[in-house]
Amino acid sequence: MTQPQNDTDRLPDELIENLIRSLEHTKEEECTCDEVYAVVDQYVEAEFRGEDVQRLMPLIKQHMELCHNCCEEYEALLDILEKNDPA
């Protein structure tokens, strides 16, 4: 495994660009991963029912824009609800 590097000069341009891009979604108040995990089941059910989750739970939606891991878990849960739906 490659050892961690702490020198900013070694960061590739692309990584710096991604970091700057993430600033567009950065807010003073953000949900943490634990806070998102606590409600993601409600969030997915609301989306599945066709509710406007961006308006109802804006901080959760915003976290998904920034946290790839939480977004993957949300999408996987939505997949189960949508594809497992007996209707």
Binding site: Q5, T8, I16
Partner: peptide
Amino acid sequence: LTRIRRILDEELTEKQRQALVLLGL
């Protein structure tokens, strides 16, 4: 890029830089 690298050096803690490297690099 030079300006942003300087800002990163000045603003980020060692732990924050380490996290960026581990996750992004």
